[in-house]
Simulated assay, not measured.
Amino acid sequence: MKISQVGINKVINMYEKNNRNIEKTKKVAKKDSLEISQVGKSLSSFAAQDKKEISQEKLEKIRNEVAKGTYNVDAKLVAQKMIDIMKGREI
């Protein structure tokens, strides 16, 4: 059986063209990545530490006021917070 008009050069060219298309596809298929700098990491841990320290200070102040009997609560603020939490506005 003889196949006409198909030379070895044509076959090689088709192979190379197909190979280039595959390489382009491989280059396009990159994954997204996220890198956080050391400064960003340190800021994140710093913020978390501040919140804990402030919370401890506030907690101690409230404990002392409750122990002394001088702790006063604004009923309107408590009611507003309860409504906000129930409506999902604030957690």
Rank of each mutant, 00 (worst) to 15 (best):
K2G: 08
K2N: 11
K2F: 08
I3L: 15
S4Y: 02
S4E: 14
Q5Y: 09
I8P: 02
K10W: 02
V11S: 06
V11N: 07
I12F: 08
I12W: 06
N13A: 10
M14D: 15
E16D: 15
K17I: 06
R20T: 09
N21R: 06
E23H: 12
T25S: 12
K26A: 08
K27T: 06
K27Y: 06
V28C: 00
V28Y: 02
V28R: 06
A29P: 00
E35S: 10
I36F: 13
S37C: 07
S37P: 08
S37L: 07
Q38D: 14
V39S: 11
V39Y: 03
G40W: 09
S42Y: 02
L43I: 10
S44L: 04
S45F: 01
K52T: 11
E53S: 07
I54Q: 12
S55T: 07
S55L: 14
Q56L: 09
L59P: 00
L59S: 11
E60Q: 04
I62N: 10
N64P: 00
N64W: 03
E65T: 00
E65F: 03
V66I: 13
V66E: 05
A67C: 01
A67D: 15
K68M: 04
K68R: 01
T70H: 03
T70R: 00
Y71E: 05
Y71W: 05
N72V: 05
D74V: 07
A75Q: 14
K76V: 09
V78S: 04
A79K: 12
A79T: 09
Q80K: 12
K81A: 14
K81C: 06
I83K: 13
D84A: 08
I85T: 10
M86L: 10
K87S: 09
K87E: 11
G88K: 07
G88I: 03
R89C: 00
I91L: 13
I91Q: 13
